[in-house]
Design a protein around this nucleic acid. Sequence first.
DNA 1: GTCTATAAGCAGATAGAC
DNA 2: GTCTATCTGCTTATAGAC
Lengths: 186, 186
Amino acid sequence: MDTKSLIIEKATILFQQKGYKSVGLTEILKACNVTKGALYHHFPNGKEQLLIACLQVLNEVIMTDIESIFRRHLSTKEALLSIIDKLIRDLETEGTITGYTFSSIVSEMATVSEPVRHACSALYENIQQIYSAKLVTDGLSNESASAIALLMTASIEGAMMLCLTQQSSDPLKTIAKLLPKLLKDI
Amino acid sequence: MDTKSLIIEKATILFQQKGYKSVGLTEILKACNVTKGALYHHFPNGKEQLLIACLQVLNEVIMTDIESIFRRHLSTKEALLSIIDKLIRDLETEGTITGYTFSSIVSEMATVSEPVRHACSALYENIQQIYSAKLVTDGLSNESASAIALLMTASIEGAMMLCLTQQSSDPLKTIAKLLPKLLKDI
DNA sequence: GTCTATAAGCAGATAGAC
DNA sequence: GTCTATCTGCTTATAGAC
């Protein structure tokens, strides 16, 4: 694996876990066993450029991952539960944010950096697009499909935040029980 | 108004808007027209102590505010809509996070500082407690009341995050339409 | 492409006058 | 209780050897 990918991979994990500002360049470099020279060779514009690269890679990873889940499961309900379940497993093994959520980055950077805000916005939009498309094949109208897709994304992100503060995966488990009910009666 | 309260008030706004690390002490002091000496007199343990003081005050403000909303509205649905509506109005006038949400602080600090995580956890718990108590008087069992209270909190926080990235209040408006349906059929 | 050494700036925090 | 001046350490970023 090349250095650039290595840096992106390690940095992504750290950014998801601790946010942007809380992670120093030195911390990232230590995790990769790489020095400043190498980093600034691949990312001449420094830390923010690295973050955006991370978000782009994250975008691709999440997309292929969620798409494959939706291919494996026939019903939207099963697919959704499978996604939440993976978040729960990640949370319980790692103890921090991983996988499909990046709220730590959003809330810290959205008001501070336009390029970062755009990258995050694209990511959320893609996720909701997948949910929404599936719901349309389930027979929903475009409007209600995208509305429910939004509620799914929002409640997962919000539950993730509650999990963080409570240091427990219960909030995710709770919405995993409630969201399917929402899918039934529409 | 005394200096201590002034500092807390201004700092709370800045922390909600830009997160913790992104706000420098100098920025807070400039907003108050106060100097470092005064700040460190009131908060000897510095910035983190100030943040926790902000969260405690925020806790009280949110509690009295939400409680009064619930007193004014007979139905849980109306009260919830009124709360979301206030968030939307704040968002549209200020353009940033205010009011009942503090996701920027949570996601940045929960993994970094235990005292801050505790303060945030208490705040979320209080909010959910109010929702939940009201739902119980509506006839729900304790379990389903607290589950739905959690979904309400999570989806509002998540929607707030989506509003930030999209720079639009639409996500909040969407969940304002969907959540009442959830309250109907339980 | 990767390293070391160093720069330049800003953060949070302190000391002591008033 | 509030001010100014200062300190220390850490941050991102750069320069230049290899």
